[in-house]
Design a protein around this nucleic acid. Structure first.
Lengths: 139, 139, 139, 139
DNA sequence: GTGGTCTAGACCACC
DNA sequence: GTGGTCTAGACCACC
């Protein structure tokens, strides 16, 4: 019933004020909401993910524990962690999250004095960069 | 000559993982980069801002100290803190901030599975809302 | 690779008007500029140094933070603080510090009414004493 | 019996960590120890000195008060402050102060890795600068 | 009033 | 263990 774990591209920025575990947690949550991780998919094992991200295993334990509490994943002792949510059932959450994100971004941009044309332009420039980076999986 | 300090509406979200001082710092940096705070404007005093935001004075000291190190403000002990505008630095910093904000937003949207068309569409919807809100100045 | 932290003999004079954190900061800066602390050396931990010098940990945090801002050290959260040597910066800073020290000393001596010959004479007397003391390392 | 007040060249460095009042106090003390201010000389009035140094009168009050407590000056209400010490009687203090200053300077220079020749050289360079500055009293 | 230094100590993130 | 954030509050320098 469960599938093999999929490769996710998680980037940790140690310079930011957001704690490491928050960054990892958010990446996993987004992967689930987006449907890239589907119901029953196995998550990368604690140790493997810790090694890959070069963080302490305790950090990953914390992330998985919190995602479990929030109902995104469940653990099967001895087997691993698995995605609990069917993303088909949660399009509303995803949509709300996206709208909120957008509002916040637009609000800040507008506050900085940018008009809508400049915003669209900047987005059009940023998007290909983001997609390209994700495609060429270096390291 | 210095002008009277202006009222800024800073909201602290204690639920977020972003530390309090970072939230305050970002709000002030935004106010300066956007031009709402002008050269020579006096910032709210350490104690007064601490009282208003219900945080410890030391937290504000940290914020002001970091903004000073970054070249946005300066202190005159006994008198207060004042905005220091470097006409070379400000537009550059503003642009960098906008680009970084955009990249982060686009990255998250893409992570959630949204394509560029949907992003543009969402922005076009959100922008008028934001602008309208700002026009009817509540409080 | 980082090496073990080295014992530094920092003495705090509570009678002087120089703030505690400035005295500690200067002592560390001296140790770095003089080469006693080398690239990658680990500094005494915040708490340990605070205990040793009998000051509040926050005072040490301030010192380390400022030395970080000035580019002498860097922190690896969870691991400690380490010396960062910029091979361009260090000799220049050392030279500037020496010149400033000398100017201040000469200014004071001159203010006290001493002429250059008397200054040179006094220095010639003091130097051997200092060197001798350093050779017989007490403690 | 009292003479007119003499012009002193006091420089205040607001960037240094030494408080303003300490800098002024030291300058006056040095002027007395050096003999530039002699027994019975009248000090610049509180208000005049405050204006000249662009500091708050309270700062000067503090300086004069402390110098009085330490026995360097005395006040005659309504007339002003006057030098109390005969510098002829205090050559020992002056000499000790000079020796201590020198030892401290040489110690630091040696700690930084400078040898005696470099120290003498630096002093020879600094001295003329200091003297020249004091002669051309600009501002 | 203003900013600056410092203490005592809690609690969190990460190793 | 390590550093980082934050509180509550005293006391000083300076306006």
């Amino acid at each position: 019933m469960e599938k093999q774990n999929k490769v996710l591209n998680i980037k940790i920025d140690t310079k930011t004020a957001l704690p490491t575990y928050e960054q990892i947690k958010q990446a996993l949550k987004f992967a689930i909401l987006s449907g890239r991780l589907e119901e029953g998919d196995q998550l990368t094992s604690l140790r493997e993910l810790a090694l890959k991200l070069k963080v302490n295993p305790n950090t990953i334990i914390k992330v998985y524990y919190q995602l479990e509490v929030e109902g995104y994943i469940y653990s099967r002792p001895g087997a691993g962690y698995f995605v609990k949510l069917d993303h088909q059932k949660i399009p509303k959450d995803k949509c709300t999250l996206f709208k909120d994100m957008t509002k916040e971004y637009v609000f800040k941009a507008h506050q900085l004095g940018y008009e809508i044309d400049e915003i669209h332009k900047q987005i059009s420039e940023a998007f290909p960069e983001i997609v390209t980076k994700k495609t060429n999986k270096d390291k």
